[in-house]
Design a protein around this nucleic acid. Structure first.
Lengths: 276, 276
DNA sequence: CAAATACTTGCGTGTTACGCGCAACCATGC
DNA sequence: GCATGGTTGCGCGTAACACGCAAGTATTTG
């Protein structure tokens, strides 16, 4: 840690090894930091100081400069990627009923046992479910959702399988013939589906037939079927594409659901209704 | 300012309208904060405390809770929208030769024309390539890499297709029979492969046969084949699994490569060598 | 209706990170 | 060789943070 020692070492460094010792001062270091933030998403002051061999003070100065420049955004102990100002697609949707979705996801996660293989649909609610699976072991998760993928990408104990397909931006999920092709090679113990709207008779409502087709196939490929839908989705039909639910299934919603909303589902013989 | 006033109002509230009156505290406040962050992009602790009439401590608690949920991201004096950041735990595994990888990626991105369909291998270098494709239009990108997926998930003009498969954590890519199955349904104009090691005679070296098998298939499925490998990979064979390169291909590396490293590749008739 | 329980909030504590000024240092150019 | 501008490390005071405690409130239970 003695600065004198470092400087002595630097001054006595041979000019022969020109490229390996004295590199990375100021400008290059900042560019490197900026790129690291972009790549990793977030960095920590102390780690940067250690790996770049400078004091935290210097790192802070760099971060302040880059923040001024708009390249990055400062956090408490470090920095992260600058906010994409506003994100209309996913941002608005995930902003609503976060707590409800989280509770639903937590309840669903508790239903998954060690050794299980589960299919996770795309969507924010299933993303929360995935979040609560982190740290679990001996689990196989099959998913078509980018949100769940992000949550579990670093989870050690979980075997993560993705479906193929083309990315649908608004729902952040993979759909299409390739996704369906992949599913024909897989089955699971439990299936967790999301929904843009849910009707007791018609089933799950989505914006496109691609999505409903995939959900239908998912339901066929799994043992127990759970539909995760917060109370704002019940009885709604915002779109015109429907995925009927033939076999027995479980509706998981939040305590904000009214009896009027739940009655049609409770009336069905094959449907189990749960409020998380 | 007076909590007594609010509380009086709460106690006098009728039990009939049980759900509509009694909350503006805790739960709803957090939902409100989440929404404010989403709309405004960033908020400040002190301001929130003043406008919501609670102490900064409470706001901090709320922010900590919402951060845990993943709804927002904490900054120094406040909070901001959660850019789709990976966990800070990810660290700087990709800290080596960032500048070189980036230059290689940029050069490769320039080779891709409007209307092209390209296959992107997993890896950090192809991740940089993907980064430089953001903002492009009329492009179809097929990838097995989570890094490239993250880069292009929000890119409007690009049709993004993922291969199926099980996630290989160390390389952040999808491999296995499902990935190969998906590839048999696709072809592309250009293929960009990464490499853990590269030998002029043996081909691409990887840690597992799953990876080499996939790379081999990728090369077959695309027209022009590019291998992106910074100079530290040339002539290296860190593992024992190999993907031979049969057809003509282009090696893209950085200017740090020595003539000794490049000579074996230049000697091959079917190989084009480029330094970015 | 009263007691018990869970939750929330404000305040005080110590800890951590931050920003700024100073002096020494290095790399340029004249 | 000397001067100049940019960089770096260090110490200081300040601001933001995390944690624990106690008081108050809402919800549940008998």
């Amino acid at each position: 840690m003695s600065p004198a020692g470092i400087r002595t070492a630097r001054t006595t460094a041979e000019p022969t090894g020109a490229q390996d010792r004295r590199r990375l001062r100021a400008r290059d270091r900042r560019a490197l930091i900026a790129r690291m933030v972009q790549t990793d998403g977030a960095v920590v002051v102390e780690e940067l100081a250690r790996s770049l061999d400078v004091t935290p003070s210097t790192i802070r100065r760099d971060l302040a400069l880059l923040t001024e420049q708009g390249t990055i955004a400062r956090t408490y102990g470090g920095a992260m990627v600058a906010g994409h100002t506003a994100e209309p697609t996913l941002g608005q949707r995930s902003g609503l009923a976060v707590a409800e979705k989280d509770r639903i996801g937590r309840w669903a996660a508790a239903r998954i046992a060690q050794g299980d293989t589960v299919i996770l649909d795309a969507g924010t609610t299933t993303g929360r479910l995935a979040h609560h699976l982190r740290g679990r072991t001996e689990l196989t998760v099959i998913t078509s959702g980018l949100t769940a993928l992000r949550e579990l990408a670093e989870a050690d104990g979980i075997e993560l399988i993705t479906l193929a397909g083309t990315l649908r931006q608004v729902s952040q999920g993979f759909v299409g013939p390739l996704a369906e092709l992949t599913l024909t090679r897989l089955t699971a113990d439990k299936v967790f589906l999301g929904a843009d709207g849910l009707d007791a008779k018609l089933g799950i409502c989505e914006a496109s037939l691609q999505q409903t087709a995939l959900k239908e196939l998912m339901a066929q490929r799994g043992g127990q079927v759970y539909v995760l839908a917060d109370s704002s989705k019940l009885g709604q039909s915002p779109f015109t594409a429907w995925a009927p639910l033939t076999g027995p299934w479980t509706l998981v919603t939040d305590s904000g659901a009214t009896d009027d909303q739940l009655a049609p589902f409770r009336a069905l013989p094959d449907v189990d209704v749960v409020t998380a």
